[in-house]
Design a protein around this nucleic acid. Structure first.
Lengths: 174, 174
DNA sequence: TGCACACCCTGTAGTAACTTCAGGGTCAAG
DNA sequence: CTTGACCCTGAAGTTACTACAGGGTGTGCA
């Protein structure tokens, strides 16, 4: 007699809301489970393992698409695993780039922070005036749009780095 | 005679789509401008400056809420600027935390990558088996939910770090 | 004057990875 | 039977945009 789990069991096991599990089912990361007579989902050990896998990959900041690929490979053990290598390499590169972005950002923020000494009001605020000064430095021409040879400050003002991991394709990628 | 700008002028100046400008107006970061007879938006130099400010703050990965606060302060020059300090400090802390997260993540990914030597198929894939092994290590009890003294691996499997910057309040914050 | 093209408008919907809400059903214990 | 915990589906919201649909405006040229 195989052990079964309700969605609540699974959720507690993986420390996620039940909604997330339903979401993963909707997104086809998890299979549609059997149901009880009362229409409750009935999960097996394999489902539990699969959810753990997904959560761990999420903890590695992989997108659901990436995880889908990995799951597909797991379900096809005789396929080549070159895909995994390529994906992981790209992933590692992205993390490295992002680390660099954040370091530069931190330095910028710290420089800005250091401008605020004894000021008490907004009109004397070194940070606000610093933000204003930086915002006005890059005066691109009205016919802008060409990214060539832009200053770093202008580049930043015009293209905020997307700090959300693996943003949607519409978001600006660095 | 003051110089005026269309939305397209502003968009070119700030190197953003016109949609983003309309979005900022909708989000009350930019004021509703006057209109032409043909219902075109008519912007002034001050609007242009405000947009630059917003974009620069975005480049510093500030949320729109944070930027709203700063803009409110700018519009009230006699208010205290302590808010700015506090906000920037918190922001810097967040960036530092995120850098740490990403460095740990990179190490993890690299360790995982190093497992893949000569394997050619998914069933022999060091990475996949590594992911599986890690996913099954943290076996929390079915009555989980308590975060106390969790292992690092379990913590990661159960609470993926949100790598989106300043995620929505619903997303898990580290 | 008419046409073509670039630009403008509003409203709607989509993106990623969730999360919340509404409204209702099921299950088990007292 | 009641109560409370848990389950269900579908829809909508979060953040910061971005794209699309369908229509209007402005300008230059033939």
């Amino acid at each position: 007699m195989q052990k079964t789990f309700t969605i609540g069991d699974l959720a507690r096991y993986a420390a996620v809301p039940v909604e997330t599990i339903r979401y993963y089912e909707h997104e086809r990361l998890l299979r549609k489970p059997a149901r009880t007579h009362g229409n409750y989902r009935l999960y097996l050990e394999a489902d539990r393992e699969r959810l753990s896998f997904i959560r761990y990959c999420r903890s590695l900041a992989m997108t659901l698409d990436e995880i889908r690929q990995l799951l597909r490979l797991q379900d096809a053990p005789d396929d080549t695993c070159e895909t995994v290598n390529v994906m992981l390499d790209a992933h590692i590169d992205q993390v490295a780039i992002r680390i660099g972005d954040l370091r530069r950002l931190k330095r910028q923020l710290q420089a800005l922070r250091d401008r605020c000494g004894l000021a008490r009001t907004a009109k004397n605020c070194g940070i606000l005036s610093g933000l204003n000064a930086a915002a006005t430095l890059p005066q691109p021409s009205a016919n802008g749009g060409d990214r060539a040879a832009s200053t770093a400050a202008r580049s930043k003002a015009g293209k905020p780095r997307n700090l959300r991991w693996k943003s949607s394709p519409r978001q600006v990628r660095v």
